[in-house]
Design a protein around this nucleic acid. Sequence first.
DNA 1: TACTGATAGTCAGCATACTGATCAATCTCA
DNA 2: TGAGATTGATCAGTATGCTGACTATCAGTA
Lengths: 178, 178
Amino acid sequence: MLTISILVNDRASGPVSLLEEENSVKDNNDMPGHLARRFQQIAVAVFLAEVEDAGFDLTPVQYAALATIKANPRLDQVTLAGLIAFDRTTITGVIDRLVQKGLVERRASSRDRRARELEITDEGRRTLRKVTPAVESAQRIMLRGLSAKEGEELMRLLRKAIAAGNDLSRAPLRDMQA
Amino acid sequence: MLTISILVNDRASGPVSLLEEENSVKDNNDMPGHLARRFQQIAVAVFLAEVEDAGFDLTPVQYAALATIKANPRLDQVTLAGLIAFDRTTITGVIDRLVQKGLVERRASSRDRRARELEITDEGRRTLRKVTPAVESAQRIMLRGLSAKEGEELMRLLRKAIAAGNDLSRAPLRDMQA
DNA sequence: TACTGATAGTCAGCATACTGATCAATCTCA
DNA sequence: TGAGATTGATCAGTATGCTGACTATCAGTA
């Protein structure tokens, strides 16, 4: 199926297949999967560097969780996972570390004894406020090769591709239900 | 369904800063770092599903390594890492698993006793050939929400952003020297 | 040649992510 | 109501990725 001329590196020779034949390997730069990995790799590195420069020890994942917990009081872990598209088994460890750092409290829910209620602490609130400029800065830096318009377009296309693929990962994004 | 007005920065009020102030949290969908994570998450899931459906047990990272080893006979690990932008400490484990599966041979280099020479096996060659359609298919599926033109544009913008950020991660892409 | 610095590879340790399993609590519906 | 299904959380196991440390080796030079 030679559709996808997008994926084909037909610079000159006009190959027939995405991965060309026997003796050639497709250029990584034409594989969206590889580009996704590289961009994510850089994004994480930039985030960690900016946040550390600001004097904090917080990963991108921990930041997203913390911000979402602050915005949604008494959130349970499964709902949190849905809001930021984390696997529920990953959340356990992330929350462990946020609790350990004193940024979040985890307590039993009164409504559902299976569930845990998450609440941001004052310290968590303070950290979130103070780390924000570094996070903003990181978002800018990871797009520094693009014009403002290109950055917008990249985000639009990513959103669109993600929306179409949302259900393909184990941890799809989910709305809050009522 | 209340949706997520919580996470939405209401466009109407005209936010001042990227992350707005105290009581609001930026919509994840406006954070390139978050979009990068999501897209990569989906890309990996799609890759694994397609490859498994085809009857193979190979991760995206293992596939990239295997293809690059095939294309570059007697490659050493550091050069391999540079070609696919992996950290050198990650390569060790990846190669371990490829060797374990009988797809790659690792032997001492005659030229430099510190280095290891990597060589694809016949089995590796066979696997690579047979898994290729699944890999192609995965690349298509992860862009299924986009038109051909949009997919092309997404890859162009990712390449551009990555090029500008290449040196920001511990594992930048490197050319083969000599 | 002996010293110095750089390099290839590995390892320990940590933090995502995922699969698949388990346990307890809750829900559904006959 | 009560059996079966579902759900919230956790755990064990595996695979990236990273930091930082370490060994062995190499290359250049005083």
